[in-house]
Design a protein around this nucleic acid. Structure first.
Lengths: 236, 236
DNA sequence: GAGTGGTCTAGACCACAGA
DNA sequence: CTGTGGTCTAGACCACTCT
């Protein structure tokens, strides 16, 4: 054996993937059943099952009990959009991350914010505004409101050392999140803080995170269009 | 049994998830081993193994052979960014999708484009430019180059009936894709076609798709910032 | 060496689809 | 009724980590 032997279920997955990628098996075609794979590869049913189950989880095939396994309709490109702690992300590029703190305050929530955080009107909320820099260049303006019930120690954080995202991830275990991304122009204040023209387009990400019973945080993060892009990859 | 019995491995996963979400088990804490779970739930090792393996695939725990299973460091927020055929997407909102075709031509590839498509300089490529409308309002400007080797029948498509994305998905099975999203201003031509001011920020998605041995297509899709946003959700 | 996870087998019972 | 997938067991051998 010259080769480093790959697990049997991986070999089966590769074999099926190859047929789909090459176009030999088209969407809605039947994929060999577990029994057929057992014979073909001289493997047990559990192994064949695992290969097909994982391909189904990856979205390449569809399985229906009693009916069979078919090639999935490949009508969508999907990929993981991973939203990470910005400090970690910058560090991974081998660059230096730093933070400029613009505002750390306790405020009373207006009606809209209160509803968004699931609090009553006028409840106390934590508010932070800061700018993240990569090698001294501003790359993100972060305006965030935090629910004190979800992260009571938020205000004691030294934000130049621990980012809001990191604090929240560590103190308010994440159970749910939703986001939306759009293109927008910065406000005068945001442009000033980022050191850009107010005519320069930016990516704006609005995010809302839930931790257990509480909405933990509502944030708006602004990235200058010329200094940041989201990238992704997808492999069948 | 009043309840609809959930599979054993799901019950184990739920149990572990609960402990992580509640904060009882913190990042880097050890999760019960497969042997421990076998005893606790009176299940076989394969079942315990499956529960832990799936949690690892979901990113909630980390497993190291010989060492053990631990709660993952950052519950990084990740979610599927699904890129779909725009016709399908509009139809799903109950709206009417239509297309305005601006250009359908065969051209010679310049050096940069040729390299991007994996062709030699000056090779023939298909070029289409069109605008997608939702209820008559322009929402996407699509500028696309296609490799004739990957989709020889591309030019025969009636693009008012079948979108380029759909044609390519059906004729060039997708094996790989990469994309990047950024904020930008439209060119004069793009602004005109979209019916917007050239000062209005847009989301630009650059996409490159691979089908088998060929790069199938390189496309730039521009969305007016005020008429489109990417949305996503995540649940632990 | 003891404990951990990674893989695999040869059975088993069940639920469901389709002829 | 046959074939399909969904789950589960009780063993097994191996590779790895840690002490």
């Amino acid at each position: 054996m010259a080769k480093d032997e790959r697990p049997a279920y991986e070999q089966v997955k590769d074999w099926i993937r190859k047929h789909i990628a090459s176009g030999a098996w088209k969407p809605d075609d039947v994929v060999p059943s577990e029994a057929a794979l057992m014979e073909r590869f001289a493997i047990s049913r559990m192994t064949a099952h695992r290969a097909l189950r994982e391909l189904a989880a990856e979205g390449l095939v569809t399985r229906v009990q009693g009916s069979g396994t078919r090639v999935a309709q490949l009508h969508r490109i999907s990929s993981q959009l991973v939203i990470r702690d910005i400090h970690e992300e910058v560090a991974e590029r081998g660059h230096v991350h730093s933070t400029r703190v613009l505002r750390v305050a306790e405020e009373k929530a207006g009606p809209e914010l209160a509803e968004s955080l699931g609090l009553r009107r006028g409840a106390r909320v934590f508010h932070t505004v800061l700018v993240h820099l990569e090698n001294g260049v501003p790359i993100q303006y972060e305006d965030r409101y935090v629910n004190p019930q979800a992260a009571p120690t938020y205000m004691q954080t030294d934000f130049t050392r621990e980012s809001p995202t990191l604090h929240l991830l560590q103190h308010a275990p994440l159970t749910e999140a939703s986001y939306s991304i759009e293109a927008t122009l910065p406000t005068a204040e945001e442009a000033l803080a980022l050191g850009i023209e107010s005519s320069e387009p930016c990516l704006a990400m609005m995010r809302r995170t839930v931790s257990g019973a509480h909405v933990a945080s509502v944030a708006r993060q602004l990235y200058p269009g010329t200094r940041y892009s989201f990238n992704g990859q997808f492999q069948a």
